[in-house]
């Protein structure tokens, strides 16, 4: 009771702040929480004219349909594999780049490389994907020009499922390495110089210094970044995937988020799409919670 009184007293005291925070709260309620409520259409036969409330309940029909269709296994596999491979392949590059930059003695050159490698992460997905497709074009693309010059047959890269993950991941590495290296570079600035000096006096070479001093001192941040990134394993970039994939590569490139897009926006099957999206959201929530728990256990660093 007193708690309640205190609360209203606080509201009166902070009325100016309440007024300021109100528009934001309304935004969150309408555009973040109302859609969560809208998830109930996954359990209904949503019709455009009947609306959310007027549509009849469908129970778990769409979930059953999804789980019993061949799509489920394929999507799950594709989403997971893209996520895991992206994590494992892309993860080492920023660390290597940061260490190499840190060892660079020509300061102006270091600055130049850092500035330039940082740039691609701000290019739009459309531009990056355009470049990827142009580069790999069988008729004019530079890669195929090289293949042809060496006497090979041009490869239709974008239609070959076996090439898809390589293309997706390597273009991601090209785009994100400089951006992700910033964190490690920041950590390297606080490196204990006396340790390095001591090692030098003991006759330690550059490679040995990197291996025995620089890398171990980066280990805590590497662990944190790895755990945090594993939380995103289920969140392959929908917008990039939609640009790079096509029916010829669906067998490896179709993931939950592209499937919900096709079912919902293209085929207007709102309930089915929402059911799949709901499932995806639950799985990624579990993944994030687990990684966050692990991170908390390991080094007191967590998102919450």
């Amino acid at each position: 009771m007193t708690k309640c009184r205190e609360f209203f007293h606080g509201l009166r005291r902070d009325w100016q702040l309440v007024l300021l925070v109100l528009p934001g709260v309304i935004f969150y309620l309408i555009y973040r929480y109302l859609p969560m409520y809208g998830l109930i259409i996954a359990f209904k036969d949503y019709g455009i004219y009947t609306g959310i409330h007027g549509s009849p309940w469908a129970g778990l029909k769409y979930f059953q349909e999804f789980f019993s269709s061949g799509d489920f296994f394929l999507l799950f596999k594709n989403t997971l594999l893209i996520g895991v491979y992206s994590l494992l392949w892309s993860f080492p590059f920023p660390i290597i780049l940061a260490i190499l930059l840190n060892e660079m003695r020509l300061k102006s050159f270091k600055k130049l490389v850092q500035t330039v490698t940082f740039l691609p992460s701000f290019l739009s997905t459309v531009v990056v994907c355009s470049m990827v497709i142009d580069f790999l074009s069988p008729s004019t693309g530079i890669i195929n020009t090289i293949i042809k010059a060496c006497g090979g047959e041009p490869i239709y890269f974008m239609t070959k499922p076996e090439w898809f993950r390589t293309i997706y991941i390597s273009s991601g590495i090209w785009q994100q390495t400089g951006y992700n290296a910033v964190i490690y570079l920041a950590a390297l600035t606080s490196l204990d110089a006396s340790l390095l000096e001591a090692a030098e006096i003991d006759g330690c070479g550059r490679l040995k210094k990197i291996w025995y001093i620089v890398l171990p001192s980066l280990m805590p941040i590497i662990t944190i970044m790895f755990i945090l990134n594993s939380g995103n394993i289920f969140k392959a970039a929908q917008d990039k995937m939609l640009l790079l994939y096509n029916p010829a590569t669906y067998s490896v490139s179709d993931i939950f988020s592209t499937f919900t897009y096709r079912k919902g926006i293209v085929e207007n099957n709102y309930s089915y799409s929402t059911a799949v999206g709901f499932f995806e959201a639950m799985v990624s929530l579990i993944v994030v919670t687990v990684t966050n728990y692990v991170s908390k256990k390991m080094n007191d660093t967590s998102l919450w």
């Binding site: 969560m36 409520y37 809208g38 998830l39 709102y270 799409s273 929402t274 919450w304």
Partner: peptide, 17 residues
Amino acid sequence: ITITLYFTGGLIPTFLV
């Protein structure tokens, strides 16, 4: 607001709103 970092309504429900 923190909840919305981890859970969202998804594509279609947001579209409907």
